[in-house]
């Protein structure tokens, strides 16, 4: 018996590994991966890259408040905010918030969605009926208003926002995984395992999970973009974590400080571009995965 375990383990591992293989054949996806790599490096080494503390109120050499400086003035690459904070440093530190929000939300969405889909698809019956009605409800909840209310009523923190998102967004993943499990369950090797008396847990872990991981991964990668966009909206509306410098927070700061009327484009354009870059990189990568998973679609 131990031999069998030794032989089987690498197969499961290699399945998992092939599930997370990167879509390097697709030029779109490669661009996305490069952007992601830059984004992650920036987020991890923010203290090294950012010239200032993003929340520090800066002063000029004459001890005046360094507020509303234009790009290049006093050595501030992107200028400063009305409060005298360095915009470039905020962009760099904003990557950290975005990465945190994106990854945790994606993980939770993929995790909850996969569990729901597995249970629903594998056990069927009342488990399925119950979970799918729950998914219906999640589809009926207006997503952004829900996240706003939860974020506003709980302690303002990134975690509460992420949890609120995950509470709704698992629905798409759950449904897709469920139908995948349904088709897997009727395949020969799963039937064979069942007939030969394998336990449900064993069948789920060994035969089904490895096959749905690529889909979980795809939906997780889509959720990254959603999470970053949603967090930006929440912060922009003023319900975000006041201690975290995020791109949404920067945009709120700019909007409330009349940056539009003063045409301080250098203030509110960069955070938006940063969001677009990261979120569309996520889209490109998930498209690459889709082509990898469903090659016959060919688009």
């Amino acid at each position: 018996m131990p031999e069998a375990a030794v032989i089987r383990k690498p197969r499961v591992l290699s399945r998992v590994f092939s599930a997370v293989r990167l879509p390097v054949g697709d030029p779109f996806a490669v661009v996305g991966l490069v952007i992601y790599a830059l984004f992650i490096v920036t987020a991890l080494s923010a203290p090294l890259i950012a010239p200032y503390d993003p929340t520090e109120i800066l002063y000029t050499e004459n001890y005046d408040l360094a507020s509303d400086l234009l790009p290049g003035e006093e050595g501030h690459v992107l200028g400063t905010t009305s409060l005298g904070r360095d915009i470039f440093s905020q962009i760099v530190w904003g990557a950290r918030s975005a990465l945190l929000v994106g990854l945790t939300a994606a993980f939770m969405v993929a995790f909850i969605g996969s569990i729901v889909g597995l249970l629903s698809g594998y056990f069927g019956g009342w488990v399925d009926a119950l979970l799918m009605r729950l998914a219906d409800v999640a589809f009926g909840i207006p997503f952004l208003p829900f996240v706003i209310v939860i974020s506003a009523f709980s302690e303002p923190s990134i975690w509460n926002t992420v949890i609120a998102m995950a509470l709704v967004l698992w629905r798409d993943t759950g449904r897709v995984i469920r139908s995948q499990v349904l088709s897997l369950r009727s395949r020969g090797y799963v039937e064979a395992a069942r007939v030969s008396g394998s336990s449900d847990l064993k069948i789920i872990l060994r035969h089904i999970t490895p096959n749905i991981l690529p889909l979980s991964f795809l939906y997780g990668s889509i959720a990254i973009g959603w999470a970053i966009l949603t967090e930006a909206s929440i912060s922009f509306l003023g319900f975000g974590d006041p201690d975290a410098i995020s791109w949404g927070f920067m945009l709120q700061d700019a909007f409330n400080s009349q940056a539009l009327a003063r045409q301080a484009y250098h203030w509110f354009i960069p955070p938006g571009l940063a969001i677009i870059l990261v979120v569309s990189a996520g889209f490109f990568i998930s498209r690459g995965y889709e082509n990898l998973l469903f090659p016959k679609l060919g688009r």
């Binding site: 973009g225 966009l229 930006a232 909206s233 922009f236 949404g248 945009l251 700019a254 909007f255 539009l260 509110f268 354009i269 955070p271 938006g272 969001i275 677009i276 979120v279 569309s280 996520g282 889209f283």
Partner: peptide
């Protein structure tokens, strides 16, 4: 699709 709507509005 990757744009924050409110940012597009601001621009």
């Amino acid at each position: 699709r990757a744009m924050p709507e409110f940012w597009l509005g601001m621009v």
